[in-house]
Measured scan of single mutants.
Amino acid sequence: MTFKLIINGKTLKGETTTEAVDAATAEKVFKQYFNDNGIDGEWTYDDATKTFTITE
């Protein structure tokens, strides 16, 4: 399955996707992406659209 990440950061904005077997696996991938890029904020997940959103 394809999961999308929408980034609404102070310095970084955009979208990316990842292929994962489930939302929990995608969450781990995206959290690592947050850490690697110094993004910290509030994030949500919409199961209907398989979209994670992080807002700094």
Rank of each mutant, 00 (worst) to 15 (best):
T53W: 05
F52I: 01
F34P: 01
V21Y: 09
I54S: 02
K13H: 08
T11D: 10
V29L: 11
L5S: 01
T11V: 11
E27L: 15
T17F: 14
T25M: 10
I54V: 13
A23W: 07
F30I: 05
E19W: 15
E15I: 13
G38K: 11
I39A: 05
F52Y: 04
N35C: 12
G9Q: 06
N35Y: 13
D22F: 02
D22I: 01
Y45M: 00
T44E: 08
N8S: 07
T49A: 05
F52H: 00
V21P: 14
A24F: 07
T53F: 09
D47K: 05
Y45Q: 00
I6Y: 04
E27F: 15
F34I: 15
G14F: 15
T2N: 07
K10S: 10
A26L: 02
K31R: 14
D40S: 13
T53G: 01
E42C: 10
K31V: 10
V29D: 04
K31A: 05
A48L: 10
W43C: 06
A26N: 01
D47G: 05
I54L: 12
L12K: 10
F52L: 01
F30L: 04
I54G: 02
L5W: 02
G38L: 12
K28N: 07
K4E: 03
K4I: 13
M1F: 14
E19C: 13
T55S: 08
Y33G: 03
D22G: 01
T51Q: 02
G14V: 14
G41D: 03
A26P: 00
T11Y: 13
T11W: 13
T49F: 04
L12Y: 13
K10F: 12
K13N: 08
N37Y: 15
A26E: 00
G14W: 15
N35V: 14
N37F: 15
T2M: 10
D47I: 06
T2C: 13
T11H: 13
T16Y: 15
D40K: 13
T18N: 02
K10Q: 10
F30C: 03
T44W: 08
A26H: 00
F3M: 02
A20L: 02
V29H: 12
T55G: 04
V21W: 11
I39T: 05
K10I: 14
Q32P: 01
T49L: 06
L5G: 02
G14N: 07
N35E: 14
G9Y: 13
E42H: 11
L12A: 09
D46R: 01
T16P: 02
V21E: 07
Y33H: 06
V29P: 00
E19A: 07
E42Q: 10
L12G: 10
T49V: 04
N37L: 15
Q32A: 13
M1R: 07
Y45F: 05
W43H: 01
T53D: 01
F52K: 00
F52P: 00
T53E: 04
K28H: 07
Y33V: 06
K13F: 12
K50H: 13
D40N: 12
G41N: 06
E15R: 06
T53R: 04
T55C: 05
E19V: 15
D47Y: 05
F34E: 08
N37I: 15
T51M: 02
A26Y: 01
K50L: 11
L5F: 08
T11R: 08
F3T: 02
G14E: 10
D36W: 10
E42S: 08
F34M: 15
D40E: 13
